[in-house]
Design a protein around this nucleic acid. Structure first.
Lengths: 348, 348
DNA sequence: TTGTAAGCGTTATCAG
DNA sequence: CTGATAACGCTTACAA
């Protein structure tokens, strides 16, 4: 910058202001400065800028560590976040979320990042309490019981579940089961709690029979749960799944029990398109807008960093349903005697 | 740091050296300094350090942009990279690889990062040429035709394919097909080229019949290719797949053609465990060690940054095969008359 | 509209 | 073994 200033016979501050626009610079010099920068291929040094401005223009995505082993959030999420961050002039560092508050603190106390995006927050999350107490800028993917003043983006799980239930109901299914995350290990995990509540509300509202099974996060868990489910509740004709990690187990269990999809049983899951298309038959899904969630999370964090005032940006995204081939009308005549309201319904 | 120095009555440089160990400090003062840092909860400021040392202690992972739409590299890769980077004291920024050299240059000219990890390199990759010409530190996931002086980590695709072929051969399969990436759009993409060559070598070496079909990257492409394959070459009993994005299409096509897996046809794919367990039946795979590749890539970049000398670290990882249920002995008696060498073979 | 200069928090050189 | 002190490259009052 000094060099550019010298070459043009202006001061460094003029160069700096020409670039940042933080004070007015005569149109002529501004253009000359920018032209010279272009010519010299100048790029402002990140460290110098960060040191002087006390802002790193870097944010961190705290990725849930391997504690669940597998994780539900797809890669598209990270990509979406990275893209918008870069578009807004920020770098996005991915950090496997250290369970220790200390490590988070270290990250922010070094001034390495200006703000955080928290993933997989629990209903009562100690990290959230800590950051809130310190008034540190952050946004959440997911949300807590108490979100006062905090921006977040989440899926509207009750609505997502209701779409699934509604579709199955439309097809004549009257006995549904929800397979969700294991509550023992996931107590306080928002999506589980909200999905389950939503499921009971949705089934109740339609006067149909619904209950849930909890499953661990692996395919084996899904297999086991589905097998017992089929024995304990052979009258079930529709399954709703919230955690795509168990899908393989469910499908294999059904296959081994000679239950055809969708002839004997219909399945709807909250899952990405990528996963939907891997299944046989292709899975009817409530779409998980991962990339968009990443985008929104980063956007609202940066808005906050850039001094946006006003209420926090709290959004529960609405989902759409994509009907593929894992859902169909109830066939079993034993189930209801007659396929009452399904016969003439058009595909929506 | 100044504050700590003052409180202890030593100079800032002593504090700095006590922390960095870059010059000897008497055991006593060193301990006092560290104790005081602990007490005051001191964290060295990243920007100040970066400015003075001219190193950001940050590296970037250049993630392939959405040009293929879907991407083959799983999330575990990013996680593995992030974990080891953080363990070595570096931050890992994820950047959706801008096709433009300019943007890469901007990143490095700002001094925002000390080095790059390139993903999805082509056999002749302009980015590689550019970085090499500038002597900029980087490592690759994958490798080019000419890798002189560049560290990389890649899968040993010929070996991976050979494991797949070997397993199918062991089971008595004598007519194999490889479904790989579409060459029209992927010309110069190393894994495709190497897999295909490896496939022909492996089948040739065993005196069995092998040929390949190329498929686009979507499930629909996989479906189409598999359908035509079944018509054109009904004698095929084993399929090897390199790109897990097409798996769903393949499985669905087989299902729709009433080909049972593994009774009528066996399948082996290069894929992650996560995907393997989604399929019905669970897929026999040559394991893709994504996390390890991420780790190694980052490690060798950092080694390079820390001034390691000597030859570049060039590694083609060996794979293991995990036999699940998509492979089985040839059943079709029409195929070879007799199942010659398969009858007595033990599982390895 | 522009210039001057004081930081920002480290590292590293040069003397003791 | 330790202290001063000059960078590092930029931002931003304060003056003019």
């Amino acid at each position: 910058m000094t060099e550019i200033a010298n070459r043009l016979g202006v001061s460094v501050s003029t160069v700096s202001y020409a670039l940042s626009g933080r004070r007015t610079v005569s149109e002529g010099t501004r253009r000359r400065v920018l032209a010279e920068m272009e010519r010299a291929n100048f790029q402002p040094n990140a460290a110098g800028r960060a040191l002087a401005s006390r802002r790193s223009r870097t944010i961190a995505l705290l990725y849930p560590a391997g504690d669940h082993g597998l994780t539900t959030m797809p890669l598209e999420f990270v990509i979406g976040a990275a893209e918008v961050a870069s578009k807004l002039g920020y770098a996005l560092v991915v950090s496997t979320s250290p369970a220790e508050d200390e490590q988070i603190l270290s990250l922010i106390q070094r001034g390495a990042v200006d703000g955080l995006v928290l993933m997989e927050v629990a209903l009562r999350d100690p990290r959230v309490e800590m950051l809130r107490a310190r008034q540190y800028p952050f946004t959440m993917i997911g949300h807590c019981s108490d979100n006062a003043g905090i921006s977040f983006v989440d899926l509207d799980f009750p609505q997502a579940i209701d779409q699934a239930v509604s579709e199955l109901h439309r097809l004549g299914h009257r006995r549904l089961v929800l397979i969700d995350r294991d509550t023992e290990t996931e107590s306080g995990y928002g999506p589980s709690v909200r999905s389950r509540q939503g499921f009971y509300l949705s089934t109740l509202a339609r006067g149909i029979h619904g209950f849930h099974f909890s499953s661990g996060p692996t395919a084996q868990d899904g297999y086991r749960v589905t097998s017992s489910l089929l024995i304990a509740n052979p009258e079930v004709t529709g399954i709703v799944i919230t955690n795509s990690d168990v899908l393989g187990g469910v499908f294999n269990a059904l296959h081994d029990s000679h239950m055809a999809i969708p002839d004997d049983i219909s399945i709807v899951a909250i899952a990405s398109r990528r996963i939907a298309e891997l299944m046989v038959p292709p899975l009817t899904t409530v779409d998980f807008p991962a990339a968009e969630m990443g985008r929104i999370g980063v956007e609202s964090l940066i808005a906050q960093l850039e001094g946006e005032t006003g209420p926090p940006n709290q959004r529960c995204l609405q989902t759409g349903i994509t009907v593929r081939q894992s859902t169909g009308p109830v066939k079993s005549a034993a189930e209801h005697g007659r396929k009452d309201d399904t016969a003439m319904v058009q595909s929506s």
